[in-house]
Amino acid sequence: GPMASDKRPRTAFTAEQLQRLKAEFQTNRYLTEQRRQSLAQELGLNESQIKIWFQNKRAK
């Protein structure tokens, strides 16, 4: 629909990254900035991508 703007492409996470994020989520529903930074480095992701993933996951 018209609401779907092309400005922010959805990140396609790899299965491996998703597995890691899910495991982290089961341990911590809320990430500290430090955890998020190390996860971002570990997974080669953007911190904001991880932050948003957690927000979306909590919203469900």
Rank of each mutant, 00 (worst) to 15 (best):
G1F: 06
G1Q: 04
P2C: 15
M3K: 15
M3L: 13
M3S: 15
A4W: 15
A4T: 05
A4P: 15
A4F: 15
S5R: 02
S5Q: 07
S5I: 02
S5E: 15
S5K: 05
D6K: 04
D6H: 02
D6T: 04
D6V: 04
D6S: 05
D6Q: 04
K7E: 15
K7W: 08
K7R: 06
K7M: 13
R8D: 15
R8V: 15
R8E: 15
P9S: 07
P9F: 06
P9M: 05
P9A: 07
R10G: 15
R10N: 14
R10H: 13
R10V: 13
R10D: 15
R10A: 12
T11Q: 08
A12T: 13
A12W: 13
F13Q: 02
F13T: 03
F13D: 01
F13N: 01
F13M: 08
F13L: 09
T14W: 02
T14A: 03
T14D: 05
T14C: 03
T14F: 02
A15K: 10
A15F: 09
A15G: 07
A15D: 12
A15I: 09
A15W: 09
E16I: 07
E16A: 10
E16N: 07
Q17I: 08
Q17H: 04
L18I: 12
L18N: 05
L18V: 09
Q19F: 07
Q19D: 12
Q19R: 10
R20H: 05
R20V: 07
R20M: 05
L21F: 02
L21W: 00
K22R: 11
K22G: 09
K22W: 13
K22M: 14
A23N: 09
A23T: 10
E24Y: 03
E24K: 01
F25T: 02
F25W: 07
F25E: 01
F25D: 01
F25Y: 08
Q26E: 13
Q26W: 06
Q26K: 10
N28W: 03
R29H: 11
R29F: 05
R29A: 10
R29P: 14
Y30C: 13
L31E: 06
L31D: 13
L31Y: 01
L31A: 04
T32I: 02
T32W: 04
T32E: 05
T32H: 04
E33V: 13
E33G: 08
Q34E: 11
Q34F: 08
Q34N: 09
R36T: 12
R36Y: 11
R36P: 02
Q37P: 01
Q37W: 07
Q37F: 08
S38P: 01
S38E: 12
L39S: 00
A40M: 04
A40T: 03
A40K: 02
A40Q: 03
Q41N: 12
Q41R: 12
Q41M: 10
Q41P: 01
E42Q: 06
E42G: 03
L43K: 00
L43C: 03
G44M: 06
G44Q: 06
G44K: 11
L45W: 01
L45G: 01
N46C: 07
N46F: 08
N46Q: 12
N46W: 06
N46G: 10
E47A: 12
E47H: 04
E47P: 12
E47C: 04
E47W: 03
S48M: 13
S48I: 12
Q49E: 09
Q49N: 05
Q49T: 12
I50D: 00
I50H: 00
I50E: 00
I50S: 00
K51I: 14
K51P: 01
K51G: 10
K51L: 11
K51V: 12
I52Q: 15
I52G: 09
I52S: 10
I52W: 11
W53P: 00
F54H: 01
F54G: 01
F54N: 01
F54M: 03
Q55R: 11
Q55T: 07
Q55C: 11
Q55L: 06
N56T: 11
N56D: 11
K57V: 10
K57C: 09
R58V: 08
R58P: 03
R58S: 07
R58G: 06
R58L: 14
R58F: 06
A59V: 08
A59D: 07
A59K: 14
A59W: 12
K60I: 11
K60R: 10
K60D: 10
K60S: 09
